[in-house]
Write a protein that binds this DNA or RNA. Sequence first.
RNA 1: GGGGCCGUGGGGUAGCUUGGCCAUCCUCACUGGUUUGGGGCCAGUUGACCCCGGUUCGAAUCCGGGCGGCCCCA
Length: 481
Amino acid sequence: MGKNKSGIEFDKTEQTNEWYTDVINKANLIEYTDVSGCYILKPRAWYIWEQIQAYMDKKIKKKGVKNAAFPLFIPEHLLTKEKEHVEGFAPEVAWVTHGGNSKLAERLAIRPTSETVMYAAYSKWVRSHNDLPLKLNQWCNVVRWEFKHPQPFLRTREFYWQEGHTVFATKEEAVLETKDILIDVYKKMYEEVLAIPVLFGFKSEKEKFAGAVHTMSVEPFLPIGKAIQGGTTHYLGQNFAKAFNIQFTDTDQKKKFVHQNSWGLSTRSIGAMVMMHSDSHGLVLPPKVAEHKVIIVPIIRKDNKEKVLKFAENIKKELATFNPFLDDRENYSVGWKFNEAELYGYPIRIEIGEQEVDAKKVTVVRRDILQKENIPAKNLKEKVSKMLETMHKDMYNKAKKFLDDSIVVEEKDVKKIAKYVKEGKIVKTIFDREKDTDEIIKAQTGGKTIIIPFDEVPKKGAKCPFTGNEAKAVVYIAKSL
RNA sequence: GGGGCCGUGGGGUAGCUUGGCCAUCCUCACUGGUUUGGGGCCAGUUGACCCCGGUUCGAAUCCGGGCGGCCCCA
């Protein structure tokens, strides 16, 4: 008998941060490097990212967005062109100052985001209304030299993302797109790929992107009682158009500044996924991002090895569409394999021993609920397919229930709001939507404004509980990662 | 932004207070054998003091700096 060690050594609710670190390490997602905040995304992690990429890439291409690649380096004179933008990013820009031993005439920023390099080019490319809309995206890495404690996926100095940068003739088209990308791409990606429900809406004035007119965000709510910005779209207005002189001649023969958007979603989403679904046994992968949706563990003895393996091989063939991993390694015990499968998060485990072979059955275990079920092997492909679908739905619904149960409504009593925030709730309330009010909210409740939902307004005459001013918007407040 | 803990084979650790022998133990990995219904067993092998500087006859241990990791609070 083994030592009956549980795979994960920390409690998810009591020691969430240790638990998180333990899960991603034991699931073989991450390797540390000598540079703080920069991690190796091992194949298991990168595969997840590839699934997120594949889903979004297809969607945005359908919307007429084309992929391109812009340089990693941004010369200082470009980075500093838009005033609010540079003020927002300056504190965490990493600079290249030397080439070999010689000092550069102008230092180069390593892109923290690519508005400024891209728009320098856009100003050359946009001449007439016929050039619009211009819709480009790039899949790349960016660097933001954060000084807070780094955490794999969730807060890293280098991260991978996509950044879409689109240019329109009119405000209406641009604003429409920020909402479309937010809901049709980002929100759906979270729901359909990662099985995570999100809050979505506008960011407050305080929390919006540096240089944007408005920012919209999707926000998963993690089991630690904190919201996390999971993907953002920005309507940049004409701020960058003016700074970079991006003008077009319209049908009325007048020169006009363009309206622009940028939008991004990063590898942070993987961190949200781990936090959301995983448990004390290890990683729980939503089926859509699992490379091997099925692991088959044969349980063999010397005298039945051939018989059991043959049966297992047949099952593997039948389930080929799920890319099953037949774990026929002989130097590991069955218990070891079970535990490892749980750490790695294979969505479905099929156990096959002599009992199963003789009865023409298989033992099936869903990773999210870990209940064993002994079912006939007949039509297994359909059964597995359904099981994966159900698993995704169940994972989503569980997360959705948690989200719904976490929301409390309190529009008057600031002390109560503070208490709820402290308890890890999301408080749905109202405020005057002034920029300075965010500070007051932070000071009085310990929470941040997470999102301002679309299409909801306070009752007439309602007062902002934080300032006493007229309430102008509904807002969700919570702790934030 | 503030505070605390820590860095020794791949992972986890003992040793550090009071400097000195071949650096402890567990685990993983590797080889061979045996085994397989929840991290099996036996034997063997490889493998480590974060970096730089200082003190000293002698540093994992003391001092200074750096780099890195973790936690808590705002």
